[in-house]
Design a protein around this nucleic acid. Structure first.
Lengths: 124, 124
DNA sequence: GTACGAGCTAGAGCCGACTCTAGGTCAAGT
DNA sequence: ACTTGACCTAGAGTCGGCTCTAGCTCGTAC
């Protein structure tokens, strides 16, 4: 299945068809999406793989603007690998910071849970 | 310092004065905030501690609506500890899910970083 | 006495990331 | 022939969580 409709891609990526069109408008497709004679989008396997990478970046909190920058670099072709690396490293830091913060929050949440469990006795 | 102005509380909690008033409007103060003769808010130590708990919950992604529910339970007094516990456990799950997801995303990000580092050679 | 800074309210505005609507095209099935 | 359903565009609407504005009142310092 190397060419798919927007509906199929929506199903495969978990994004809505609305979101797919929106992402394209926002310039976060590494390559322009092909069209059939009727003007309908025809996605390639590569397009879908790229979208999956984007969903992972989004799921880890990378802002659209950063994804667009990264996309721009990729679309521009070879020669800017250092810049791509810099963006990825920046995001890695965002993610690890976020995880550290969540760990600290979890301590409090678990502490409070333990307090209520105690107060309620062995059951609950 | 057991009574503070909104400005002092903003400084201590890291929330803006706007956010503090907003939170109050949204009903996420466990106890009503006192006022001085001129109608200005006077925060107690307890108020600040509550706000700090709220910031931790927010920082870990608990939605305002859930915080409000929790606040409502606390404000309503003893007897609903099971419900409070349920809300906290629900949030604990949100947080651990989120951390799992971040861990998976981080794998991809680090993989991509490694690929670029390789491609760029030992330097970078 | 007046200028300043901090506080007040109600309500508007903003930002990110979608999501939905209106109004239309097109291909396939009955 | 015609209905259905998936697709199209441009643009409006939504939602969460603040953030800011306008227009006001205080209390203190000069």
């Amino acid at each position: 299945m190397s060419s798919m409709t927007i509906g199929e891609v929506a199903e495969r990526t978990g994004l809505s068809v609305h979101a797919l069109r929106f992402y394209e408008r926002e310039g976060i497709m590494a390559n322009p999406v092909a069209r059939d004679t009727g003007g309908r989008r025809v996605y390639s396997e590569d397009d879908v793989e790229w979208l999956i990478v984007c969903t992972v970046l989004r799921a880890s909190g990378m802002p659209m603007t950063a994804i667009r920058q990264y996309t721009d670099l990729v679309r521009h072709g070879e020669g800017n690998e250092k810049e791509r690396l810099a963006l990825l490293r920046e995001h890695e830091e965002r993610v690890t910071d976020q995880m550290d913060q969540l760990t600290r929050c979890l301590d409090l949440i678990r502490y409070k849970i333990a307090v209520y469990e105690d107060a309620l006795g062995a059951d609950s």
